[in-house]
Computed example of a mutant assay.
Amino acid sequence: MKKILLMIAAVLIGSQAFSQIEKPVKWSFAIKKESNTEATVFLKADIQNSWHIYSLDQKEGGPIKTSFTFLPGADYALIGKTSQPQPHTKFESAFNMKVSYFERSVIFQQKIRLKSGTGVLHGKLEFMTCNDKKCLPPENLDFSIKL
């Protein structure tokens, strides 16, 4: 009986090792108050070596662009659009087009108007991660940041 249990445990542990989900991007979120009425939200992606994510302004017909959706809140209002640093651009044969992307690390920024001194900003992001061999399915991530 013990041998059977050990064999089952070994199979389960082995199958878990082979079914690890790749997560080459880790996100972190922060806010910096510029004044009593304005703040900047920082959305940072730390990207493993050899992987990349796509820019906010990726053209149609290519990979899924990185996008942020900020849910409406009584405590804040968006000022303008989300900004990004200058992305790299290259031709990717998988998409048969030039793509704009980020490697290693990137910080996106969103200015907000504060309507009160407290509250929570809720949002969602979507992004796609690729390397020179494959692309992972697009990911959706919910986030919240205390104001």
Score class of each variant (00 low, 15 high):
Glu103Thr: 04
Phe91Ala: 01
Thr89Cys: 13
Asn140Gly: 10
Lys111Ala: 01
Thr89Ser: 14
Lys23Cys: 12
Ala10Phe: 00
Leu56Val: 03
Ile79Met: 06
Ser100Glu: 05
Ser93Trp: 05
Leu147Ile: 03
Phe108Ser: 07
Phe95Gly: 06
Ala77Leu: 14
Ser28Ala: 07
His122Gln: 14
Lys133Ala: 15
Ala39Gln: 05
Lys98Asn: 15
Trp27His: 02
Phe127Lys: 03
Gln110Gly: 10
Asn96Arg: 11
Lys90Asp: 15
Ile13Cys: 07
Glu126Ile: 15
Cys135Tyr: 06
Phe42Met: 14
Val11Cys: 08
Asn36Tyr: 12
Glu139Tyr: 10
Gln16Arg: 13
Gly62Phe: 00
Ser83Asp: 12
Glu126Ser: 15
Tyr76Leu: 05
Gln20Gly: 10
Ile79Gly: 00
Thr69Lys: 10
Cys135Ser: 09
Asp57His: 13
Gln16Tyr: 15
Lys133Phe: 14
Phe68His: 04
Glu126Asn: 14
Asp75Arg: 06
Ser50Leu: 07
Ala94Pro: 02
Asp132Tyr: 09
Gln109Leu: 15
Ser35Gly: 04
Leu6Arg: 07
Gln48Gly: 10
Arg104Trp: 09
Thr118Phe: 13
Lys81Pro: 10
Lys124Phe: 12
His52Arg: 07
Glu103Phe: 00
Gln20Asn: 10
Ser144Leu: 03
Arg104Ala: 09
Ser83Glu: 13
Asp75Trp: 09
Thr129Gly: 04
Lys65Pro: 03
Ser15Phe: 12
Leu78Cys: 09
Asp142Phe: 01
Lys133Trp: 12
Ser67Ala: 09
Thr129Ser: 08
Leu114Glu: 00
Arg104Ile: 10
Gly14Gln: 04
Gly14Ser: 01
Pro137Cys: 07
Asn49Ile: 07
Ala77Cys: 11
Thr82Gly: 06
Gly117Ala: 08
Ser116Ala: 01
Ser93Pro: 05
Asn131Gln: 09
Gly14Val: 03
Phe18Ser: 13
Arg104Ser: 12
Ala77His: 10
Lys124Arg: 15
Leu12Phe: 10
Asn131Phe: 00
Cys135Glu: 04
Gln48Tyr: 11
Ala9Lys: 06
Thr40Glu: 13
Phe68Gly: 03
Thr118Tyr: 11
Phe29Cys: 04
Gln109Ala: 14
Ile64Gln: 11
His122Arg: 15
Ile64Gly: 06
Leu121Phe: 05
Leu43Cys: 07
Glu60Val: 12
Phe70Asn: 05
Lys23Ile: 11
Lys23Asp: 12
Ala30Thr: 11
Leu125Ser: 01
Ile4Glu: 00
Gly62Tyr: 02
Phe91Ser: 01
Leu78Phe: 08
Trp51Ala: 00
Leu43Glu: 01
Pro137Trp: 10
Leu121Arg: 02
